[in-house]
């Protein structure tokens, strides 16, 4: 699918979903392997922090159903949530079944409630999502990780879970993260990575590559503040050389083009923004030199 076809997706909102899915999913979208199994997943996923915490609001739920429709139409895969995100898991559980199984490539990822009883919290999340099981369970923000991580590996051993991971955000507890990455056979780690927050490039991403651990980049837009900031400036002309028609593609391509990054999980409640986010999976990707140029450009704004 080329860029023109991709952009035309915005006008497909009324097309019946199965037809839309078959028609729109780009065959050449950027897929990344999960090192521990080789399974390939789309490089752009979706976060649900704040955006899916809308409670029982029927208007907001209808809006998010359209966001999910666009996500799957573009061949999205990973949806990441947490019991700490308020009603987000319940909202997903209400919306996902409305697609009648037409959620190709859905990769369910959630987290273990930091202070609670692990197994019962996981079961509660499963009931809220209305799924048989999760693809990925992660220890949220590393709190009580020693207790929870054993539970997760036991679940994986029993075949109740496919992947185990740990998460942090905002650049916190990276020393602890690195230690757990060295000591445990993790499938995934999740941490903050974007064009300005690059600390993970020094140790975590190299270690993830060395240990064969998939990396999920959270806060790709710094919860919106980064995108709001850069959008006050014109996109550099050379962004066209890497098929970035707008800032969201610019920021996301910077992340997913890192060789050790498996997936970025921007969050949005706007269909238009979902189209923009998913466009970062297609077209030319920046090489190492261009990535440095991208970071320098944004830092200088």
């Amino acid at each position: 699918m080329n860029r023109r076809q991709f952009i035309s997706l915005a006008g497909l909102g009324l097309t019946p979903l199965p037809q839309l899915l078959r028609a729109a999913v780009s065959e050449d979208r950027l897929m990344r392997p999960i090192p521990s199994t080789g399974e390939r997943i789309p490089a752009i996923g979706m976060g649900t922090w704040v955006t899916f915490n809308i409670g029982n609001d029927p208007v907001a739920r209808a809006q998010l159903r359209d966001v999910l429709r666009a996500f799957f139409a573009h061949g999205g895969g990973m949806i990441d949530s947490s019991p700490m995100y308020g009603s987000a898991e319940a909202v997903l559980g209400q919306l996902l079944p409305q697609f009648g199984g037409e959620t190709p490539g859905l990769f369910t990822a959630t987290k273990v409630w930091t202070s609670g009883d692990g197994p019962s919290d996981i079961e509660n999340s499963r009931r809220l999502w209305r799924v048989d099981g999760f693809d990925l369970l992660q220890v949220h923000n590393l709190l009580a990780w020693e207790r929870h991580i054993e539970t997760l590996f036991e679940m994986k051993e029993r075949g109740e879970l496919r992947y185990v991971g740990i998460t942090t955000s905002h650049g916190r507890r990276h020393r602890d993260m690195l230690r757990v990455m060295r000591d445990w056979p993790l499938d995934f780690v999740q941490a903050t990575y974007n064009v300005l927050d690059r600390e993970v490039e020094r140790e975590m991403l190299p270690l993830a590559a060395e240990r064969g651990i998939a990396f999920i980049a959270n806060r790709p837009y710094r919860r919106g503040s980064l995108i709001n900031f850069v959008q006050r400036h014109p996109l550099p002309a050379w962004a066209a050389d890497i098929d970035c028609p707008h800032w969201p593609a610019f920021l996301l391509k910077f992340i997913v083009s890192h060789p050790a990054v498996t997936c970025a999980i921007p969050a949005t409640s706007q269909v238009e923004h979902m189209h923009e986010n998913m466009s970062a999976m297609v077209g030319r990707m920046p090489d190492a030199d261009t990535r440095e140029r991208m970071a320098a450009h944004v830092a200088a704004l």
């Binding site: 922090w49 704040v50 955006t51 915490n53 809308i54 409670g55 907001a60 995100y85 308020g86 409640s269």
Partner: peptide, 8 residues
């Protein structure tokens, strides 16, 4: 610490 959007 804000887990919801202003709109919500």
């Amino acid at each position: 610490f804000l887990m919801f959007s202003p709109a919500s």
